[in-house]
Amino acid sequence: MTDNLTSLRIQELAYELRIADAMSTEVISVESDATIMNVRETLRDKRISGLPVVDNHKLVGIISIENLLQSVITSGIEGRVKDSMVSEVVSVNSDEPLIYAVRKFDQFGYGRFPVVKRDSGELVGIITKGDIVKCLLRKLEVNFHEEEIEKYRASHIFEDIHSDHTTLTFQYKIKGGEYKSAGKQSGNLKVNLLRLGITPTIVRRIAIASCEAEMNIIIFTDGGELIVAVEEDKIKVNAIDEGPGIADVEKAMHEGYSTAPDWVRELGFGAGMGLPNIKNCSDEMSIDTKLGKGTNLEFIVNTRT
């Protein structure tokens, strides 16, 4: 994974993960009736700088060393927590995306936030910047490993297999008329190629071209298939069907020319961009077509740059 991809992945994770996934659930708290002396002892024993104040599981305030000092000055160590605590507490909800907590740290500059349940206000945890970093790293490592292993396995296939020439072939069946799933098989192809470690910009070109080829089979024929041959230095796609054939290939290659019926246009296809688009995305393209017999459209994208 490159640095850029890693940072993208971190951003995604910050949206996907919930605060509950990162927070620490072992929260030390005090009740509002406790004395300042109790607080002092707890802070000292646990070596922490502040405590959430909780009555009946509900977060009612927070008390810090500063509040404690102020209280000792005004009412001595027998004073009550409820008289010295800050009752307007900035807290976060446990079901919010992690990114919300990240932003609150930026906004307020506090070291920690109590985490509460959205509706009940019950204190369920506490979160620090360290918790967030730890959680993201843990997740990233797991995902990273899973994807890396898949990728490693797949991308080394050409090195691992000893032969004079290795070709990996994928076959995708396409049903005619199923316009609603047009692009589905190309999506599957895209995922496989990324897994094989092919550069994303090259995968994008192949995905666009095969999506067009898939649309053509769906619109004009009763069905066909995409046969994808992955070789060490290139990817060759054959879109084969037994449809009506293309009457005038030269015209069909011209942008804007289309023989698609109106109902197809209404579905967002058939604007006469398909074949020119495939040509633009590929390094080589050829069409073998016979009227009434079918079409074999082949395009090749070189993967070695």
Binding site: S181, G183, K184, S186, M215, L267, G268, F269, M273, P276
Partner: peptide
């Protein structure tokens, strides 16, 4: 509303697509 156009002319980068088509192939595209 033309998915071929989307395939042919969208630049790489973060794009918002506005469309009147709502079929699953919009997502595939």
């Amino acid at each position: 509303d033309l998915m071929s156009h989307v395939l042919a002319h969208i630049k790489e980068g973060d794009v918002l697509l506005l469309t009147g088509l709502t079929t699953p192939q919009v997502i595939y595209t």
